[in-house]
Design a protein around this nucleic acid. Structure first.
Lengths: 223, 223
DNA sequence: ATTGATGATATTTTCGACATTGTTGCTTTT
DNA sequence: AAAAGCAACAATGTCGAAAATATCATCAAT
């Protein structure tokens, strides 16, 4: 893991990873004083990094109140999932229809990589490994990477990042029996078989299943 | 014209106006030294202003290379318009189907407001007034405000902001005969008549017409 | 003469100091 | 006890200097 790029870039990445990794609680404030100590950066770079995260929707900025991590709510989860289903299935159809050979190989390698990455730590019981989360992210990204519209892919990436926060905070409930691997394989197979509608349908099922799992867990409020 | 607000705010507005007004060439770099002289502000102020512009997509920030004005490209315009057509028509259909009475009044008032706002300055010939641009923005926002998905509305707002840059550049060509007012009225009528598909189709025509106008203008590169 | 290294110059990035403003919660006064 | 005022805290705005980095011109070696 190298610390390349400008200081702002480093702080931005660490902060994003911490939010996505569940290190900071959703809705919790991010006071500059604490961040300054934790990340060892000046207010200027922190401000810049936070601004970028806010643009992505991972944090929100209330003027004079500073920044805080996005708050999770059931309504938003439902809205988010529906939006993802709409956008991602649309982009996936495009990718399946127009993706070239490079896309196919990207999908295959990303899938293979994810399959070969251990999902859980040996001693750990609840948290997926950061490596797997990364691979999972890249798999979904690769899936859509064959689509023509760059903007659509960007939108999908942002939505997925927001969904990742939900996923992180619902992990205790993901251990229930669910063959995620099979779901992924189904999507890959249908995509490479060039069946746009069926692949999109499989993706929608995949996303909906995740949502339902989180909703079930949220019945008994965590914390 | 008063210089209200903070220094950053002033610089931000002037810079934005200069970019949108075509005073700086698309793709050209914005070195701090020059900006410092031109706008009489410190680097911190300039940095903050440029950051905000980058968040809006008017400038881009290559690390270690500074900021530059975005380069307009035909491909991006086409991609952007297609994405907008897809997203906005989807959201509009939702709004027309599910919008309540409040939504109807919002649409009507926003439309009326825009109609009553003078589009061009008296003496001026090329630039639409800031007030009209604002009203136009709020009209489109009101149109979609009846939809259920907050996320979708946010995405649509972002896309519209990105398109605004192109729209500003197309102004010299907008003087050609085109009854924008009629297009708007058509959308309003169909929306309030609760005809989702026809309203969406009218919106798509509206967006496409703008794109074609810009494309036509870009054939013979201005200036 | 071309290529590669070296150093001067220019530009960006980062930082800390300080003033200003808005917010919170406590104290004081009626 | 309620309202007004006050004090402490946190975010924001502002500036210029110092550090990091890129660009460019010069010079030496093959």
């Amino acid at each position: 893991m190298e610390d390349s790029g400008t200081r702002t870039e480093q702080v931005y990445r660490r902060l994003k990873a911490d939010i996505l990794g569940g290190k900071v609680e959703p809705g919790s404030p991010l006071p500059f004083a604490r961040l300054k100590d934790d990340y060892g950066a000046s207010m200027g770079v922190l401000r810049e990094a936070l601004m970028r995260l806010s643009a992505e929707g991972l944090t929100v900025n209330q003027p004079q109140f500073g920044f805080k991590v996005i708050s999770l709510s059931i309504e938003d989860l439902i809205d988010l999932t529906e939006t993802r289903c709409t956008i991602e299935s649309m982009v996936l159809k495009d990718a399946v229809t127009n993706g070239d050979l490079d896309w196919e190989t990207r999908v295959l390698t990303a899938h293979h990589r994810m399959e070969r990455t251990p999902k859980f730590e040996n001693g750990e019981d609840s948290a997926v490994t950061a490596a797997w989360a990364q691979a999972h992210q890249e798999f979904h990204e690769a899936l859509l990477s064959g689509a023509r519209s760059q903007r659509m892919q960007g939108i999908a990436a942002n939505l997925r990042a927001a969904a990742e926060v939900y996923r992180q905070w619902s992990i205790p409930f993901e251990v229930v029996k669910r063959d995620v691997s099979a779901e992924h394989r189904e999507i890959v197979d249908l995509a490479l078989a060039r069946k746009p509608d069926e692949a999109a349908a499989a993706l929608v099922r995949h996303l909906s299943a995740t949502r339902d799992l989180i909703l079930k867990g949220t019945q008994a409020p965590q914390q």
